[in-house]
Design a protein around this nucleic acid. Structure first.
Lengths: 222, 222
DNA sequence: TCAACTAGTTTTGTATACAATATTTGGATT
DNA sequence: AATCCAAATATTGTATACAAAACTAGTTGA
């Protein structure tokens, strides 16, 4: 289904959740929200189901819908899985990638270079996303690609905050270059290793993540 | 939400889809089904959304809900991802597993031995599932565990048919023993490798899978 | 004074009625 | 005769009305 109205509401609510406007554990009042959105409860309930499927809400029978912010633990867990999924994408892509996709990856790296030169975080963020999406497709496994996209999307707000850390852009770009080289040379293990460490939360990145987590939860109060 | 009624319908429809009672591409008529289930369209639509989230239905706006059987290609892709997820579970579990979980795994292997001795496929199926679920939990990564469970569940019908292949039970049991040994000895790489080949579709297993796929699609006509 | 039960209120789950969009069929025009 | 357009039909999406379940609060009993 997914009608126009319900979809719009879904996106809006998703934004409100990930930006922290809706705090963790908060119950979403169907009537209040329907009044706010100027619609009935029906599309809201649809949106609730979608969000629950994405893990952003918890639906308790006869109790209501509760905002479910990932705890710090769960976030680290998600990054752990993301790292492994991307590593697997890289392993497969190193063997299966097409010349077209390789060329497209090259382009994103060049675009990333421009973004770093201009210190344009937003632009880098966009090109970074293109890089990873291309990698997923290049795995040649449609199901894997879709799963990776899903998780990538779910980790979106945190990654965005992470990229704001000083110097992270340059480091990220350098890692992209290593990954691309591994793919060009058809080295599955190398690509997997590079991607795992590119995505994984370890060392200083853990502190950055914790900081961004706190920020996202400070916003929650506002 | 997920009320009693909608949940029941969801499960029923899921069964009808995976058993092939509902053929691929078939459109589900809300009114016809609501009459059949003796309810209104509302809980049906809820069930549709749940099933779509699981990938068993495709919801096209203003067109309806269509049954989405995984093609052979997609099935192989899903097994490919499943193998990697389980391998990762094993890698983590080899380092993190608790003595309690190890003991529980031991029990399932013993139960599997009984099932093989009695040539009881259903019993083996149950214990096999326990073994894998325990492994997921033992990874110590709750998110990973949940993802693995989801995919495992989705591959359920095909795995069940696979296990019916002659001699597969004994081989599976032997592989369980190898995996368990790797976990006991704290060998992450070994556990990962053993699990990958345990789950992966390769060699003769590919033919078995193709056969079970055909069977599941022959049923579809009936 | 505390606890347990019951009545009231609130809120979710379901049914039905209504509106909007897509498909289909019939006719008209080229 | 074929194609394109339009009206009719059917089906999805939304709103509202109704039923059931859970929480709350008040009262009664020990």
């Amino acid at each position: 289904m997914s009608l126009r109205r319900a979809d719009k509401i879904r996106e809006t609510l998703e934004q409100m959740i990930v930006t922290g406007e809706l705090t963790n554990g908060e119950r979403l009042d169907e009537m209040a929200l329907s009044e706010r959105f100027g619609c009935s409860r029906t599309p809201l309930r649809e949106a609730f189901h979608n969000l629950a499927a994405s893990g952003l809400l918890e639906l308790v029978p006869h109790r209501g819908a509760f905002v479910r912010h990932p705890g710090l633990t769960e976030m680290v867990e998600m990054f752990e899985v993301m790292a492994e999924l991307e590593a697997f994408c890289g392993r497969l892509a190193a063997r299966r990638i097409s010349p077209q996709d390789l060329a497209a990856l090259h382009e994103t790296v060049i675009a990333c270079e421009s973004a770093v030169a201009a210190n344009d975080h937003d632009q880098y963020y966009i090109e970074n996303e293109r890089f990873h999406h291309l990698l997923y497709s290049a795995s040649g496994n449609g199901f894997l690609s879709e799963q990776a996209r899903h998780l990538h999307r779910r980790l979106k707000p945190f990654r965005r905050l992470q990229l704001r850390v000083r110097g992270r852009l340059g480091q990220s770009l350098a890692e992209h270059r290593v990954i691309l080289a591994a793919l060009e040379n058809g080295r599955p293990d190398e690509a997997a290793r590079a991607l795992r460490s590119h995505v994984a939360v370890q060392g200083g990145k853990f502190n950055d993540l914790m900081a961004s987590y706190k920020i996202s939860h400070l916003n929650a109060g506002a």
